[in-house]
């Protein structure tokens, strides 16, 4: 059973000619089949956690370990992490001019699966996945994220999630900027993947709204660069009612 283990993770970034520590000792274990919601105020380091796990070059790991099924993730390049089974659905997916969605998806699936998918079944697989996400077939011929609306970008991220079938999916504020209909469609996509029981999900969000559609097993409050409280779904209800105020004060002194 796949397990992602994050131990005492410290991460810095360079900003304005100064080194700033963003993550200050994150501990978290995500097992296959589980859904963990990470909730926290703006600037608490949630996205830094997501991008650090994916290997974005902007972030420097200063100490700690990240293991995926016992393998050292931090030693892997960005593409190796993805092929090992980590998937990051990005908050701000990047435009890649000149590369069509269909070409991109096939190249990606070939890399992650280790062989080119059979053309016949692949075309069907993509078509059906797109239909489930209410994506028009013409989408496949557009350039990756170029001119996509906010909702289209997020659906495209979830399309990749469904096709690449990772062991651990990190969803970085996938709910931000979505209207209710788009949120429902995207959430249903995430739930289809979760229902296979084969993915561990790390759902990073600022709002509790998405938790009405995607029910987490565990909720963690993230503040000041670390997890400050963990609990079950009831913790989300508390955040809904009380906000992050008490954590922000505590986090500032940490």
């Amino acid at each position: 059973m796949a397990t992602l283990e994050i131990r005492d993770l410290h991460v810095t970034v360079e900003a304005d000619n100064a080194t700033k520590e963003i993550l200050k000792g994150v501990d978290l274990t995500v097992k296959q089949g589980e859904t963990h919601a990470i909730m926290g105020p703006n600037g608490s380091g949630k996205s830094t956690l997501a991008y650090s796990l994916a290997g974005h070059p902007k972030y420097t790991i200063t100490s700690g370990t990240v293991l995926l099924d016992g393998e050292d993730v931090l030693e892997m390049s960005v593409d190796e992490r993805a092929r090992a089974g980590l998937f990051l659905a990005m908050q701000y997916p990047v435009e890649v001019p000149g590369v069509s969605v269909s070409n991109f998806l096939r190249t990606s699936a070939t890399a992650v699966r280790g062989e080119a998918p059979k053309l016949r079944t692949w075309v069907k697989e993509v078509k059906e996945a797109m239909e489930r996400l209410n994506m028009d077939p013409s989408f496949a011929e557009r350039n990756v994220n170029e001119g996509f609306s906010g909702g289209e970008k997020k659906r495209h991220e979830i399309l990749q999630l469904e096709l690449l079938k990772p062991k651990v999916a990190i969803l970085d504020e996938t709910d931000s900027g979505l209207d209710v209909d788009a949120l429902r469609i995207v959430s249903e996509g995430v739930n289809r993947v979760r229902e296979t029981g084969e993915v561990g999900t790390l759902l990073i969000t600022h709002y509790t709204r998405i938790l009405r559609y995607i029910k987490p097993d565990h909720v963690h409050v993230f503040a000041g660069g670390r997890i400050v409280e963990s609990g079950g779904p009831e913790l989300a209800d508390k955040l809904e009612n009380e906000g992050y105020e008490s954590y922000v004060k505590g986090g500032a002194s940490a």
């Binding site: 994916a54 070059p57 960005v78 593409d79 990051l88 190249t107 990606s108 890399a111």
Partner: peptide
């Protein structure tokens, strides 16, 4: 670098 990161985060090696 952001485009490169995005493609590599989908398992695609840098030269590819």
């Amino acid at each position: 670098d952001e485009q490169l990161f995005y493609l590599m985060a989908r398992g695609i090696p840098e030269h590819e």
